[in-house]
Amino acid sequence: MAQLDIQNLVKRYGDFHAVRDVSLTVADGEFLVLLGPSGCGKTTTLRMVAGFIEPSAGHVKLGGADVTLLPPWKRNAGMVFQSYALFPHLTVAQNVAFGLEMRKVPRPDMNRRVEETLALVRLEGYGGRLPRQLSGGQQQRVALARALAIHPDVLLLDEPLSNLDAKLRQEVRVEIRELQQRMGLTTVMVTHDQEEALTMADRLVVMNEGSVRQVGSQRDLYERPADKFVAGFVGRSTFLDGTVEAPGCFRTEGGLSLVCAGGTAGKASLSLRPERLEIAAAPLAGLDNCLPGTVEFVSYLGAMIDIHVRLSPADRLVVQIANREGGFTPDVGQSVHVGWRASAGQVFNA
């Protein structure tokens, strides 16, 4: 395993910038997740690290060595593809052995390493099967074993869980993460699924439109999003549009005057996390903001209940409450009060 350095990486297709000046360092043994909507450049970045796409500018360094100009077969990067890309005409053992054959590992060593790697992904005894005889989850594990068998400098995962059903995905998530920590694998994963990103990563990189928007831990991204995009993409936010009249003083488009934390004068959005808001039938005391409103929509999610509250003709909020026994659950059309501390909201100037 080794440290991966991405320096000022750029990929242009004609006038279109798929990736603009991305710089990242993945420490030895770190699990970094590239998170973003489709078309944000995360996959292009990963494919440049793997060597499938030649960057327009910038460098990729693996363990300190510049591999920018090396073809994929001369880099020691293990890749797990979204479609798994197993060799359908080879058995599971032959699939796992493929990279070792390319490295001219002697036969006895090779067999031992294939066995070891299959045991690692709990597929002992499956070596003689063909990929099509395995379930989706097993195929995924073969793909992982094949990438790990070559003892790669870096493990690259391209949306590895998107073809699994929801229940299996949760199990595999934990499995991959435990394996990665146990073996100290330097790993880069690409995903658009934020829950997946949050459960697996040491550090996350949020990308949009080809650029890195924010790098940080789960807590950093959630509590201190760098911009409105991150606030909306990581976790859930409801936004009230309006203007900051003076630092600490926000007026919504619907004319509501709110106390906010900081902000500079001008057009802005106030971002609020639905679960940080409080809701009650009577006015709430001790909060910086408390506003009357009407319940417009209730969605019952089981453990949680989402309540959409209209504060003014132009302003609507989502409040999320825990579904506790005997807790307050308003009905549609009911008059309620919504309140929050100034510190619960974040202002993003437009």
């Binding site: 793997a50 990067a77 890309a85 197993l86």
Partner: peptide, 27 residues
């Protein structure tokens, strides 16, 4: 034939000629 299968062979260390012989040709 999934293009990713060819890329998988590359990433495992197979140069194009080997990839052709071991993956593309049989498939």
């Amino acid at each position: 034939i999934d293009r990713a299968v060819e890329e998988a062979a590359f990433s495992l260390g197979a140069p194009p000629a080997t990839m052709f012989r071991r993956v593309l040709w049989p498939l």
